[in-house]
């Protein structure tokens, strides 16, 4: 088991390195850098001016070297000019002595995430703050989505073809067919607009960042949860119907176990193995939903800064965001693997 986790972690780190390198490569392509130079300098820069700006800010080096520096495994670049020393790990232009005192490595491994050009602030603090907002949102999404999806799935799957099954399956198909930007729009239209006039909820969740209430926070949570819920519920249902037709359920039934106990004691655990993995693998998609919903409801969280960073060519911030999201996704995958092994005695004890 220990070895298994170790191997998985190894693969996970390799994946993270590959992914961050891809993001790094894409964000550091020349047109992006050129745009960066022009936004930082001025828009009428000549090509030579752009090149010299890039060189003097360390962007002229090969991508692999830059990646190493960003990661913190290669020493940060330094440049000696007439005014003094400057470099990746040095703020502004300083004298040679001061430069010698500065850290040699300053990448994300050292906790240096860089500086956001969009927010004019330290990347780490921005990401940290926004992540908190989103974490809060996600927590409630999961609290709503997972139990209701499992209950729907189990109820539907326990008697295949019954009325409960058909009605609940219809509901879950409907929710999987409704992406967040559709359900969000419909919810806003129905529950918040003056045209319909129900006005039960608030159309934006901006105020929820400081003071989340049911009124301003429920719709975004519901919007994300609904889309994922149908999918998980259908998985659970499929798994549950399969288990309910298994021979060992018949054995239990013919042992005289009551239906209630068959479902709870015999079927449930076996039926939950598959959906568990699904829930964990939902995270990359949930992130999608987060971005849409945060945009739609104007909730300034992680998804919102993603859009801002990407829209404003904020390279350092974008890199940090991808590191965080890749990390979240990979960790959930790891948990899903471990949980699968734990839930399934056939694999655990072999």
């Amino acid at each position: 088991m220990g070895l298994f986790i170790l191997r998985r972690t190894g693969v996970m780190i390799l994946t993270a390195l590959c992914l961050t390198f891809i993001v790094f490569f894409l964000t550091n392509l020349y047109p992006n850098l050129e745009k960066l130079a022009k936004t930082q300098g001025n828009f009428r820069m000549t090509d030579e001016a752009v090149t010299s700006w890039l060189n003097s800010n360390g962007y002229g080096q090969p991508t692999a070297v830059k990646y190493g520096q960003w990661l913190g495994v290669l020493p940060g670049w330094t440049l000696t000019t007439d005014d003094g020393e400057t470099g990746r790990c040095i703020t502004g232009v300083v004298s040679a002595d001061e430069a010698a005192d500065a850290a040699r490595f300053c990448g994300i491994l050292q906790g240096e995430w860089g500086f956001s050009t969009r927010f004019k602030d330290d990347v780490a603090s921005i990401v940290w703050e926004r992540l908190g907002n989103t974490g809060y949102l996600m927590f409630w999404v999961l609290m709503l989505m997972v139990p209701s999806a499992l209950i729907i799935g189990v109820l539907a799957g326990m008697r295949e073809g019954s009325v409960t099954d058909r009605s609940l399956s219809t509901v879950s198909i409907l929710t999987t067919a409704t992406p967040e930007y559709v359900s969000g729009v419909i919810f806003i239209a129905v529950f918040t607009s003056s045209t319909v006039g129900l006005k039960w909820f608030k159309g934006t969740a901006t105020s929820a960042m400081d003071n989340p209430t049911f009124e301003n926070f429920f719709l975004p949570v519901l919007t994300i949860a609904l889309y994922g819920m149908g999918y998980i519920a259908r998985m659970t249902r499929a798994s549950m119907t399969e288990v309910m037709t298994a021979q060992y359920i018949r054995t239990a039934r013919l042992k005289g176990v009551s239906f209630h106990n068959i479902v709870l004691k015999h079927a449930l655990r076996n039926a939950l193995i598959a959906p568990f993995t699904v829930i964990m693998l939902q995270f990359p998609w949930l992130l999608n939903g987060v971005v849409i919903v945060e945009t739609l409801f104007n909730y300034k969280g992680f998804g919102w800064i993603l859009v801002e960073a990407a829209g404003n060519n904020d390279i350092e911030l974008l890199l940090a965001i991808s590191v965080v999201s890749v990390f979240v996704v990979l960790v959930t995958q790891l948990i899903s693997d471990i949980g699968y092994v734990y839930l399934n005695p056939r694999i655990r004890i072999s």
Binding site: T15, C18, L19, I22, V23, L26, T27, L281, P284, W285, L287, N288, V291, I292, G303, L306, V307, A310, G311, L318, I321, S322, S325, V326, V329, L330, Q333
Partner: peptide, 13 residues
Amino acid sequence: LILAFPVILLFYL
């Protein structure tokens, strides 16, 4: 690798 990539980020990139 591709599946672990958040789709939106990929699109933006």
